[in-house]
Design a protein around this nucleic acid. Structure first.
Length: 681
RNA sequence: GGUGAGGUAGCUCAGUUGGUUAGAGCAUCGGAUUCAUAACCCGAAGGUCAGGAGUUCAAAUCUCCUUCUCACUACCA
C-alpha cells in the first residue's frame, strides 16, 4: 500500500438512468465506497466522493420511445429517484451529478477533441442500417427481425432474447426498423475507433504495476489481454442523436459512445463540485484514484478508461479498482426487466428509518469474493440476532443502568482492576483492526470487528455484574459503568462508516458531538459528570409478518412474469403457396447422433431422409442427449442450401417446436406407417 | 469448448510463504443469569476442506484430471 498519497478521489460507478437502484447496486459498489469514504473522512483525510447518473446510450432512447416521452424526461425521472434514494440511504456523495449536464458535455467533448487532435483515433467506414423514413442510423437495438439461428421473429439487432445468441444486425432476416417499421438500408458511415490493439503494451504495463488488485479484477483484465487476438479497436462514436455530439467535422448526427463519455463523468462531476481546484484531484500524482464498481464494469474501468486517460496524457490513473461480484436475490439473479429486485426507494418506504439494517445486512453479506445471495430470512436474522441482540442490547443496558444508578451523569472511574485494564487495552485495538480491514477493502471483516466491540461490552457487563455489585460495592460499580460508557462511545465512532444513522443516534443519546476516528482510541471520551440523554432503542425487532410481506411481493412479481413471458410471437407477413411449396420437408429418422466437440449446443446427426442419408448439425444438445434420440422420427427441410458449421457441412435443417422458454422439441408424425421420405405439406 | 473467479460446518464466510486435534459469526442443543428488546454470558455438538490421483516426513494450501456454480466468449442451417 503506497503511503505517499496526499489525497484520495473515490468514484462510484455511475448508475444508468433507465431504472431505479436496487440492492445489487448497493452491495456491489455504493455501500462499500460510502463506508470507505466515511472512514477516511473520520480519519480527517482529504477525500472526495464522486458519482452521478449515466444518462446517455441507446436503452434510454428506447425506453423514452416506449413511454412516448423524450430521453431527457426519462433521465430526469430516474436521476431524481436515484439521487433521492441514495441521499436518504446515507450514501454520502460529495456530489451526485449527471452526464446530461452542460459541464459534462463540455468536458467530454474537450476530452475527445484532445485525443482527436493527437491523432489517437483511427477512422473507419462501416456499413450500418439506416432508416430512411426516420432519417437516422439505427443502433442494433433499434432493429428487429427474424433470428437466423432460432427463427424467433422478434429478435433484436444485438441479440435474440429467445435463444440468447449474440447477433450482429446484418445477420437478421427481414430486418425492420423499430422506429418506423420500414425496411432499413445499409449505408456507409464513419466512426472513430480507439486502437486498443496498439495500446495493449501500455495497458499491459499499467496492469503489471497493480498485481495487488483483487484476484477477480486482475484475473479478468488478464483474460482480456491474453485472449486470442488480444484487445481489439473499439468504436468511440455512435450514429445516434442522444448523447454528447462528436466535436469534429463530418460528424453530424454522431455522439460519443456511452462508455467513452460515462467515465469522463467522474471528471465533470469533480469540476462541478470544485471548479477551481478539481485538477488537483485528477492530475496530481499525489492523488490516489479509486474506482468502486461491480464486476460488469471491470473492462471499462481497468482497460478502456485508463487507455483514454493515458492517451490524453494529463491525468492520473486508478490506483485500485475494488470491484465486487454480483448479489442474487432469494436464489435468483436480480433482474430489472423481470422485476426481480428489492428496489431501494421501495425499501425506504417499507422499512422507514431502517437504512442501517439494510446497510448492515448488505455489508455483512457483500459479494466480495464471489456471488452471494440476499434472502429476507437472513435480513431478519441479522437484524434480530445481531443488531438488536448484540449492539442494541449492549447500548441499552449500559444507558439504562447509567440512568438508574446515576441519573444519567457519567460516574467517575476509580481504581482499575487488572480485568479493567485488559478491557481498556483491547478497546484501544479495535480502531486499528477495523481500519486495517477497510484499507484492504475487506468490508465484511471490518464490520464483524465492529460487532466484536459490542460483544466485548456485553461480556464485560456479564463478567463484572454491576447489578449485583451495586448492593455491596458502589464505588466499584462507578468504574465499571464508566468503562461501559467509554465502550459505547467508541462504538458510536467506529460504527459510523457502516451504520451512520445509528452512530448519530448514539452520539445524541450520549449528548456528544460526533467524534472522529482518532478519539476511538481514547478511553476517556465520556467525562465524569457529563449528562447523557434518555435512552431509546437503536433497533426494533422485525416480525415474521413484515418479512412475509416482502416475500409475497417477490412471489407476486414472479407470477406476473410467468404470465407475461408466455408471449406468443406476432404473426408473420402473408406468404404465397408457391413460396411454401418450394420447401421440401420430409419425415426422416435419426440414425446416429454425437456431440460436436468444443461446443455446448451442437449435435452432429446422421439422418435417413428416405431420399438419402445425410449429415445435419443441429443446436439441440441442451435438450436432447445423443444416445436418447437414435431412431427418433423428425421433420427435416432437405432442400436448404448446405452450410458449414464448426467445420462440418450441415445438409438440412431439423424443424423444431420452440416455446417461450426457448426449449425445443422434435416434430414428428403421431401415427405409425409414415416411412422416411414422407412429404410434409 | 476457451478464459477468469469460485466450490471449506445447516447458513454466511476466514484460513497468511504447505507444519501439531481445520477457525469465526449466525442458526441448533445444554448450562448459568436477570441490568437489558426471552436479550446477554458460558459450554457442546456440527467438516473424508467438491471428487480422484500425484509430489512431500507433512497438503484445505503445490501439480494433474474430473465435476458443479458465476462472469466474459464461441457454437445454434
Amino acid at each position: 500500500m503506497p503511503t505517499n498519497y496526499k489525497r484520495t478521489l473515490v468514484t462510484s460507478a455511475l448508475p444508468y438512468a433507465n431504472g431505479p437502484v436496487h440492492i445489487g447496486h448497493l452491495a456491489g459498489c455504493y455501500l462499500p465506497s460510502d463506508i470507505y469514504v466515511r472512514y477516511k473522512r473520520s480519519k480527517g483525510e482529504d477525500i472526495l466522493f464522486i458519482c452521478g447518473s449515466d444518462e446517455h446510450g441507446v436503452p434510454i432512447t428506447i425506453k423514452a420511445k416506449k413511454e412516448g416521452v423524450t430521453p431527457q424526461d426519462v433521465v430526469n425521472k430516474y436521476h431524481k429517484i436515484m439521487g433521492d434514494a441514495f441521499k436518504e440511504f446515507g450514501i454520502s456523495f460529495d456530489i451526485y451529478s449527471r452526464t446530461s449536464s452542460k459541464t459534462h458535455h463540455q468536458t467530454a467533448s474537450d476530452f475527445f477533441k484532445v485525443l482527436y487532435d493527437k491523432g489517437v483515433f483511427t477512422e473507419e467506414i462501416t456499413e450500418q442500417y439506416y432508416d430512411e423514413e426516420a432519417k437516422q442510423f439505427l443502433a442494433d437495438r433499434y432493429i428487429s427481425g427474424t433470428c437466423p439461428k432460432c427463427a424467433n421473429p422478434s429478435a433484436y439487432g444485438d441479440q435474440c432474447e429467445k435463444c440468447g445468441s449474440t447477433l450482429s444486425a446484418t445477420e437478421l432476416i427481414e430486418p425492420k426498423s423499430t422506429l418506423s417499421g420500414s425496411k432499413p438500408i445499409l449505408k456507409k458511415t464513419k466512426n472513430w475507433f480507439l486502437p486498443l490493439d496498439k495500446l495493449q503494451p501500455k495497458i499491459q504495463a499499467y496492469l503489471d504495476e497493480h498485481k495487488d488488485w483483487k484476484s477477480n479484477v486482475f484475473g479478468q483484465c488478464k483474460s482480456w489481454l491474453d485472449s486470442g487476438d488480444g484487445l481489439q479497436p473499439r468504436a468511440m462514436t455512435r450514429d445516434l442523436d442522444w448523447g454528447v455530439p462528436v466535436p469534429v467535422k463530418d460528424a453530424e448526427g454522431k455522439v460519443l459512445y456511452v462508455w467513452f463519455d460515462a467515465p469522463i463523468g467522474y471528471i465533470s462531476a469533480t469540476k462541478e463540485l470544485i471548479p477551481n481546484d478539481w485538477e488537483k484531484y485528477w492530475k496530481d500524482k499525489e492523488t490516489r484514484l479509486i474506482h468502486f464498481i461491480g464486476k460488469d464494469n471491470i473492462v471499462f474501468h481497468c482497460i478502456i478508461f485508463p487507455a483514454m486517460l493515458m492517451e490524453h496524457g494529463d491525468f492520473i490513473l486508478a490506483d485500485n479498482v475494488p470491484a465486487n461480484e454480483f448479489l442474487n436475490l432469494e436464489g435468483d439473479k436480480i433482474s430489472t426487466s423481470r422485476n426481480w429486485a428489492v428496489w431501494l426507494h421501495e425499501y425506504l418506504i417499507d422499512f422507514k428509518d431502517k437504512q442501517d439494517v439494510l446497510r448492515y445486512t448488505l455489508c455483512s453479506n457483500a459479494p466480495e469474493t464471489k456471488d452471494n445471495d440476499f434472502t429476507w430470512a437472513d435480513f431478519q436474522t441479522k437484524n434480530n440476532s445481531e443488531l438488536v441482540a448484540i449492539l442494541g442490547n449492549f447500548v441499552n443496558r449500559t444507558l439504562v443502568l447509567t440512568h438508574k444508578y446515576y441519573n444519567g451523569l457519567v460516574p467517575a472511574s476509580d481504581t482499575y482492576t487488572k480485568d479493567d485494564l485488559l478491557i481498556l487495552e483491547q478497546l484501544a485495538t479495535f480502531p486499528d483492526k477495523i481500519a486495517a480491514a477497510l484499507e484492504q477493502f475487506k468490508f465484511r471483516e471490518a464490520l464483524s470487528e465492529m460487532m466484536n466491540l459490542a460483544r466485548l461490552g456485553n461480556k464485560y457487563l456479564a463478567d463484572t455484574e454491576p447489578w449485583k455489585l451495586i448492593k455491596t460495592d458502589e464505588q466499584r460499580v462507578k468504574t465499571i459503568m464508566n468503562i461501559a460508557l467509554q465502550i459505547t462511545c467508541n462504538l458510536a465512532i467506529v460504527c459510523e462508516p457502516f451504520i451512520p444513522f445509528t452512530s448519530g443516534k448514539l452520539f445524541s443519546m450520549l449528548n456528544l458531538p460526533a467524534l472522529k476516528w482518532h478519539a476511538a482510541k481514547q478511553t476517556n471520551n465520556m467525562a465524569a459528570g457529563h449528562k447523557i440523554n434518555k435512552e431509546e432503542l437503536l433497533f426494533a425487532k422485525i416480525e415474521d409478518a413484515e418479512i412475509q410481506a416482502q416475500i409475497d411481493k417477490l412471489e407476486a412479481s414472479k407470477k406476473l412474469n410467468l404470465a407475461t413471458t408466455v408471449s406468443i410471437a406476432p404473426a408473420k407477413a402473408e406468404t404465397s403457396f408457391d413460396d411454401f411449396s418450394k420447401m421440401d420437408i420430409r419425415t426422416g429418422t435419426i440414425l446416429e447422433a454425437e456431440r460436436v466437440p468444443k461446443t455446448d449446443k451442437l449435435l452432429k446427426l446422421k439422418i435417413d431422409t428416405g431420399i438419402d442419408v445425410r449429415t445435419v448439425v443441429s443446436g439441440i444438445a441442451e435438450w436432447y442427449k445423443p444416445e436418447a434420440i437414435i431412431g427418433q422420427q423428425v421433420s427435416i427441410l432437405v432442400n436448404l442450401a448446405p452450410r458449414k458449421i464448426k467445420g462440418i457441412e450441415s445438409q438440412g435443417m431439423i424443424l423444431m417446436a420452440s416455446n417461450s422458454a426457448g426449449e425445443l422439441s422434435f416434430i414428428s408424425p403421431t401415427k405409425t406407417g409414415f416411412n422416411n421420405g414422407s412429404e410434409i405439406k
